[in-house]
Design a protein around this nucleic acid. Structure first.
Length: 134
DNA sequence: GCCAACGTTGGC
DNA sequence: GCCAACGTTGGC
């Protein structure tokens, strides 16, 4: 199983929106690196749900329920989406600042390449952030 | 709202 | 195939 981090601006689609909808397809990825990650996602993989711009924090966990398929919002075959559903909201959101303050997480793509909208998270970082959310 | 960082595009 | 110009993202 792999771990990921997916970003969304809460004003566009927040974690609460996902909780309300129960499931969504993750669209809007128009970056090749992020696209490749989407394609690598397997059913059952888990992903941190990160709010960019507003909040700037990981607020919840989502899981992949359907692997990459053609993005229904475009004819362009370069782009794919995955279906995700919520797992649970974190007890305490983990902010970007928290992550930056944590030395062992300084290698995260979230810190190093803040613009990438889909990122891979190592199992070690995953556990660490879970702990920080308690 | 600004601007740094990054990715993409297109002229050569 | 290089690289300058441009557009977009996202932290501050």
């Amino acid at each position: 199983m792999n771990y990921w981090l997916i970003k969304s601006e809460p004003s566009v689609y927040s974690y609460d929106d996902l909780l309300r909808d129960k499931k969504t397809f993750w669209d809007g990825v128009r970056n090749y690196a992020a696209r490749n990650y989407l394609r690598a996602m397997k059913k059952g993989d888990q992903a941190f749900y990160y709010h960019s711009n507003e909040g700037m924090e990981i607020v919840g966990i989502a899981t992949v329920v359907k692997e990459a398929y053609q993005d229904p919002t475009t004819e362009d075959h370069n782009w794919v989406v995955v279906d995700v559903k919520p797992v649970k909201k974190l007890k305490r959101p983990v902010t970007l600042q928290d992550i930056k303050n944590e030395k062992s997480l300084s290698e995260m793509e979230l810190v190093k390449n803040s613009r990438l909208s889909v990122q891979k998270v190592t199992p070690v970082a995953w556990e660490k952030i879970l702990k920080m959310s308690e």
